[in-house]
Structure formats: structure tokens, C-alpha cells
């Protein structure tokens, strides 16, 4: 979804409805819209990091064998 960093308001509202959000409060949805665009810009920044050597962090077991 990071490609949607500049998502249109219309697209946002369609998605919000599909996700089951109550979209009746326009003021509230405007805040969510701004926040979604903000988080998508953060996600896009992460796409620019070189992560070629890294698999997803497996938090639940990462330290179970740590011997440092």
C-alpha cells in the first residue's frame, strides 16, 4: 500500500468502508485520512532502506538462543 502515499480522499473512503470503519463523521475521517497519508509516507521511507540482507524480524524467537 506504500505506493498510495498520496491516496485520494475518494479512494481512502472506499477503503475505509471496506475495512469496516464508520465513515459518517466527516471531521474524524479527515483526521484519519491525514494520518493514513502520513503513515504511508513513513512506510515509503522504509522502502528506501537497503534491506537486501534482512529477513523479517522473528521477535518471538530472536533472543531465545542469544548467547552474547
Amino acid at each position: 500500500m506504500s505506493q498510495n502515499a498520496n491516496m485520494s480522499k475518494e479512494t481512502f473512503l472506499v477503503m475505509a468502508k471496506q475495512l469496516g470503519l464508520d465513515i459518517s463523521d466527516a471531521n474524524h475521517m479527515e483526521i484519519v485520512y491525514q494520518q493514513v497519508n502520513e503513515i504511508m509516507s513513513v512506510v515509503t521511507k522504509l522502502r528506501n532502506m537497503d534491506l537486501s540482507d534482512y529477513e523479517p524480524s522473528n521477535t518471538f524467537s530472536s533472543f531465545q538462543s542469544y548467547d552474547g
Binding site: S2, M15, L21, Q35, V36, V43, L46, M49, E55, S57
Partner: peptide, 25 residues
Amino acid sequence: WRVETGLFISGSDYLNASRARAKYT
């Protein structure tokens, strides 16, 4: 609004952040 914003984050985006977390750690 924070929780609702979280619903828009895709599986792919989450996993990319998780890879960044592995690098960070």
C-alpha cells in the same frame, strides 16, 4: 484514529518494516 490508521497498513508494508527492524536490531 491511530487504530484505524493501522488497518490501512498492508501485510507487505508490515513485513518490510519488520525487515527494517531486523537491520536495526
